[in-house]
Simulated scan of single mutants.
Amino acid sequence: MESKWLYWAKQLQSIAQTGLTYSKDIYDLERFELIRNISVEMMAQQTGMDKTVIKDLFANETGYATPKVDVRAAVFKNNQILMVKEKSDGKWSLPGGWADIGLTPSEVAVKEVEEESGFHVKAIKMLGVLDMKCHPHPPSPYHIYKMFIQCELVGGKPTKGIETSEVNFFAEDELPPLSISRNTKEQIEMAFKYLYAPQKSTYFD
């Protein structure tokens, strides 16, 4: 589903980042920096964004290039799923965010649910590991893996977070407008399928 130009730009950025990390020859470093600049130019040309902004967001990392990891928690109560309203776009998502260094995926899910919704949960099952490019999300400058973890509600009360303005539970046929950069309708439906058929094996791309 990913546009070819975006795929190429990300591949060039990955090659450049890894080359800049491991190369010692000054001429090779110059070539890899040129490759990185080409990837930034491609992003700027296609998006209309300022090259400085793109470089800060897209070409600012060091070390071997690897995918980013986004963790989302599926929490159910009375056959309804917990969702939070994002302040950034005014739409709804499963609680979650970038994985934190030093925390396991389940610890990230538990932390994000508490911070964004006020509820206390226990992680019980990995539902799926999805590659964002294989699903109908908006284009992203990053290569992202999305982990969906089912969590059991154990306490707490609905509380707005720093990044969230509302907290609520929704039935599968009454979903609110979704923040599709974070989760799609098909991914929410996937979570409900595991609720109804907990014996299903973990999905992965």
Rank of each mutant, 00 (worst) to 15 (best):
P158L: 03
S39K: 04
I149Y: 01
C151P: 08
T52I: 12
Y145M: 12
K85W: 00
T104N: 06
I188Q: 06
K146Q: 13
T164Q: 07
W98S: 15
A99N: 03
P138N: 11
K146G: 04
A65T: 10
I149V: 02
Q187S: 07
N79C: 00
Q150L: 07
G63S: 03
W8H: 11
P177F: 08
K77E: 15
L130G: 05
E115W: 07
G156M: 11
G48I: 06
P177Y: 10
G118N: 11
W8M: 14
F58T: 12
S117A: 15
L153S: 09
K133F: 07
E115M: 12
L130C: 04
N168C: 07
N79A: 08
L103E: 12
Y27D: 13
Y194P: 00
Y7P: 02
E186Q: 10
E186S: 13
M43F: 14
M43V: 15
S165K: 10
D100V: 11
P176F: 07
F32T: 03
H137C: 01
S117K: 03
T21R: 02
L127Y: 05
D28V: 07
G161S: 06
F32I: 01
W5L: 08
D70K: 05
T164S: 11
F204T: 14
Q11V: 08
H143D: 13
A65H: 07
G96Y: 04
D89G: 06
D131E: 13
S165I: 12
G97A: 10
K24W: 08
D89R: 08
W92P: 00
S106G: 00
Y64G: 10
T47C: 06
G118K: 10
T62I: 12
Q45H: 14
H135N: 11
Q150K: 15
Y142V: 05
K111E: 14
M126S: 11
D56N: 13
S88A: 15
E86C: 10
V40R: 02
D89E: 11
P141L: 03
A123P: 04
T202S: 04
A99S: 09
F169G: 04
S23E: 15
K160H: 11
K4T: 12
K91D: 07
E115N: 14
Y203W: 14
V113W: 03
R72I: 01
V53C: 06
L153N: 05
Q11P: 00
L82D: 10
N60S: 15
Q187L: 13
E172M: 11
P105D: 03
L82I: 12
K4Y: 07
W5S: 05
I188K: 00
M43A: 15
Y7N: 14
M126T: 09
Y203R: 14
L130E: 08
L127P: 02
I144G: 00
F32G: 01
K200H: 02
L153T: 09
G156S: 06
